[in-house]
Write a protein that binds this DNA or RNA. Structure first.
Lengths: 200, 200
DNA sequence: TTTATAATGATAGTGACTTTCATTAAATAG
DNA sequence: CTATTTAATGAAAGTCACTATCATTATAAA
């Protein structure tokens, strides 16, 4: 009845489920790369992963969700919360982004890159990602509010969080599709603009 | 062969089409209000508008598009372009928002409000609206760039536009909004925060 | 081993959207 | 005003994402 995930004894059942889930995701992403997202049916994915279509939907509520699993947000939040208190919210966010992305290996970066291109090029995925950002903004607002001793629903807090995410998305949406190299540098530069009060 | 819409002589055909389109939209929005968006099928809308389902999709590519027709963006852009050159980009945007929404009649405001509630409460519609914002941001970036004599793809320009839209969306996404007036005031306040350099 | 529980697959939906094609109505040519 | 071209429509069948049901099988617990 514990609400924690048990790390020491995953159990045979859980191990199998994890393997099935991973297999579905792997085959799905491969098929998407090979044939395109729209041209790949759930039936094909199920076939490749050797499960029934019904089972696919037991593991992923929608076809989109196969792509949209993202483990980065929690990590970013934790890093943000660990930033020294004397930094301004924007400075703290800037450093967190830098820290988290800086820790990725070249391979991880490439994977993230490929996924980003896929998400940005498929309207349904792009939309889902944006919508998820709304949720992220509420969590970030809570953290920022705590840090500066305000309420999360104050306009100043909401505006700041919205502006930060907007500035970051602007970078991703603009030239993520062209070059992976400057990705991090551009995100940092965008946040630097915000920090400087958006001079123009 | 002219690419302009002919205002003086719409022609019988065009007039009929406009009427059909309006009828579809009217009945659809009524049914959405009465039964909810998901519970209303395209077949029902077609039935109410006395056309075939096939014809529905000839007028609107998707069920979502019936709701998402928006004539505001062009108006906002035009108003922005007409702002005096001595205003900063953010100031100019702030004034434009104020001007455009201030010109609406009470009836128009109520309609917009109803539509906004619908869009925000239905995930599919909310996502589509967010996605449309990506396009909007590129257009706005072009206008801002022209105004300040920079290139639209410069980071400073993209960051500014992203931040502005992010700050505005943050207001929309907050569920604390109770009336259209409230809504407007919050958008203005959010832009004011940006203008002040996001102090916190 | 027995029993409860959870995972699976098969089957048959629903509903948005597409495609095709024959029919009708409107615009245009003569 | 009639003939011809062109566009709008409806009917019908199909695709695909997704849901619901239920019998079957595999795992866990007693």
């Amino acid at each position: 009845m514990s609400s924690q995930a048990e790390r020491p004894a995953p159990g045979l059942r859980e191990r199998k489920k994890a393997k099935t889930r991973a297999a579905i995701q792997r085959h799905a992403l491969r098929l998407f790369r090979e044939q395109g997202y729209d041209a790949t049916t759930v039936e094909q994915i199920a076939g490749a992963a050797e499960i029934s279509p019904s089972t696919f939907f037991r593991y992923f509520p929608t076809k989109e969700d196969v792509v949209l699993y993202d483990a980065f947000d929690p990590l970013l939040f934790a890093t943000f919360a660990a930033q020294p208190a004397e930094l301004s919210p924007i400075q703290a966010i800037r450093r967190s982004v830098h820290t988290v992305f800086g820790k990725l290996t070249a391979e991880e970066l490439r994977e993230q890159w490929e996924r980003a291109v896929l998400v940005l090029s498929v309207p349904e995925l792009r939309m889902r990602m944006l919508d998820a950002t709304v949720t992220v903004s509420q969590q970030l607002a809570a953290l920022v509010a705590e840090r500066v001793g305000r309420r999360a629903d104050e306009i100043a807090v909401q505006a700041l969080v919205g502006a930060v995410l907007g500035a970051l998305i602007a970078v991703v949406a603009t030239d993520a599709v062209r070059s992976m190299e400057d990705y991090l540098a551009r995100m940092d530069a965008s946040l630097a603009c915000l920090e400087a009060g958006l001079p123009l």
